[in-house]
């Protein structure tokens, strides 16, 4: 159901012109969202259309995550990378870490968060959920989760599992 609501809201946001939205546009939006949902069902027949994605508490949590820990991590990361670009002091390497996340959505959220925060870039994921992360300045060849990305794994688990 999440994909239906998301496509409808995206369409309405893009056609909104500052005043009220005419009824015709809403009908076209409903039609297009229905087509997108049916296409999703046709491509992934085994995925269930659940109502879990519509829970408002998850959305509040997501916004809190986006503006709290994620924004702080992003700012810190950029100052860190900026210093490394200016001084040219790097010690690159690819390390492995296993946060043990199960669902695809949680893995995606964590991988994107890692890519946008301190000196780290997700290169690959194996089937067991182990992340291979390129690190701009390797402090430890077998790092803990805390060193790499702080509390992001906890947040990803709360948001998407």
């Amino acid at each position: 159901m999440f994909i239906f609501v998301a496509s409808l809201l995206t369409y309405l946001l893009l056609v909104w012109s500052g005043d009220a939205i005419p009824l015709g546009e809403v009908l076209i939006g409903l039609l297009l969202a229905g087509v997108v949902t049916l296409a999703f069902k046709a491509w992934h027949p085994d995925r269930q259309l659940s109502r879990r994605g519509l829970d408002p508490r998850r959305w509040v949590n997501f916004v809190v995550y986006l503006f709290g820990p994620f924004a702080a991590g992003l700012a810190k990361a950029n100052i860190d990378v900026a210093i490394r670009v200016i001084t040219g002091k790097i010690r690159p390497g690819i390390v492995k870490v296993s946060p043990g996340l199960k669902s695809d959505l949680a893995r995606t959220v964590l991988a994107n968060s890692i890519t946008l925060t301190p000196g780290t870039l997700t290169v690959d994921i194996d089937d067991a959920g182990g992340y291979y992360i390129h690190w701009l300045y390797v402090e430890d060849e077998d790092p803990s989760e805390e060193q790499l990305y702080g509390s992001f794994a906890k947040w990803a688990r709360r948001l998407a599992e």
């Binding site: 690159p92 390497g93 690819i94 390390v95 492995k96 291979y132 060849e141």
Partner: peptide, 13 residues
């Protein structure tokens, strides 16, 4: 491969 890498777990694997 990454240039001057001190460790490369993916290549080891």
């Amino acid at each position: 491969l990454p240039v001057g890498a001190v460790v490369d777990r993916l290549e080891e694997r």
